[in-house]
Design a protein around this nucleic acid. Structure first.
Lengths: 237, 237
DNA sequence: CAGTGGTCTAGACCACCGC
DNA sequence: CGGTGGTCTAGACCACTGC
């Protein structure tokens, strides 16, 4: 682990221990550099990390100040994870009921979003995830059939698509552009989850990209909002 | 503007002009340093900015590569802005109908979230925002009355609460922790917006913080999802 | 092995802030 | 004005990757 990482954690620990109380100023960078016996730039790298995590607040010409710790948000939405991972994080066993898995001619929307070539077909995969035999998520996934081949059509159970793409095709999903939607109750996909009167459903419409920002996977994920909670940290730009 | 910022923009322009095509490698850092007649660290600062915006993809020991540009998301949720700003961005005139503005004894939830002292009262402000005389947003705001004083109770129209807090109290709202919720149709606040059959409502339950992460404002904002769209960029951590 | 990015240094000068 | 953080340099060595 690089030195600036260690210093960052040391400073974090000092803050937690009350050596530098909330609202107080940290020692100036030069002083810290002498204390840790490193150059000033190394200290600055450590402080930059703390600043990004909003643990300190830096004011040019004044100093670096310890701020109030923010409450930790569980499962923040800006952290991309597969539905399978979300189920595990929520402590739910992952039952799976397949509804559809076949090749299709893509819609115009899919063509555009997945940057498909003319005459390129797609694989469409729909399934319901269950916990205690109750449906909790409905997912529709769309992939280029050229990308994943048609071998996938013979698979009995796929599990995490993210993991499948990584292990079988060395495609690493890294980012997603997501629209957050409240579906109508008349949406047939939504209705699959509306079992209890106190249930509401949130829809994530997502395009997933690999490390090179190539669009790989289009998905519609319907989540029961009485089971899953969604958080996000927002910052003024 | 610092040099590394200029270099970042110069590289961005070169990428846009096709000097460095998508998928290709940028020249090594040392080469760029010579080209721009700066030190290598300055080049690295520029590249770090490009990497954060996911314009390039850096691989240790290999090189820095230009990636596919991501589609720009309008109004990404991770950018915090006031409801007033959201209305303006959506091209809507901001009509305002006050429903409530008075002092109250806080609930236990508000006490905890706003870190109130015992016996500290709160100001509760509820209003409906309209566009073309139709309701589009319902907001409930809760603030410590000690923080903003009771002078606010005499205000006829408040407009942007963010702006009010900044101008009157020099309190700059900088971050928020937000829960994204699909409310039940039976929620009375939700019902104020359910006018058309094709309308759905999204609720943002937010705690707003100032620069020192002090909780300043608790709010419930109900948005008509047929009027507002919500996006977010997600990254694998 | 050669070439690349990742870290670190010691020192310099500048920009900003409060007194 | 003195003290702080912001930028920049020239050079060094290390860690990773592909040949």
């Amino acid at each position: 682990m690089p030195i600036y990482q260690k210093i960052k954690e040391a400073l974090e620990a000092s803050i937690a221990d009350g050596v530098y109380p909330i609202g107080e100023r940290l020692p100036p960078e030069i002083t810290l550099a002498k204390q840790f016996k490193v150059s000033r730039e190394t200290i600055r790298s450590a402080i930059k990390l703390l600043e990004q995590e909003s643990k300190v607040f830096v004011r040019h010409g004044v100093g670096t100040f310890v701020v109030n710790p923010l409450p930790s948000l569980p499962n923040s939405l800006e952290n991309l994870m597969s539905v399978t991972s979300m189920l595990m994080h929520a402590g739910l066993e992952d039952g799976e009921r397949r509804e559809k898995l076949h090749k299709e001619v893509p819609t115009d929307e899919w063509k555009e979003l997945l940057q498909l070539k003319p005459n390129e077909d797609v694989i469409v995969h729909e399934r319901i995830r269950t916990a205690n035999n109750e449906p909790v998520v409905f997912s529709k996934n769309v992939l280029s059939s050229k990308l994943v081949g048609e071998h996938i059509l013979n698979k009995k159970k796929i599990g995490s698509l993210f993991q499948y793409l990584k292990e079988v095709h060395q495609i690493e999903i890294d980012k997603a552009s997501t629209e957050i939607i409240v579906p109508l109750h008349t949406d047939p996909n939504c209705q699959k989850l509306l079992i209890h009167p106190a249930t509401t459903v949130l829809l994530l419409k997502q395009i997933h990209y690999d490390l090179h920002n190539k669009p790989v996977l289009f998905s519609l994920d319907y989540f029961r909002n009485d089971i899953f909670k969604f958080f996000i940290s927002r910052i003024r730009s």
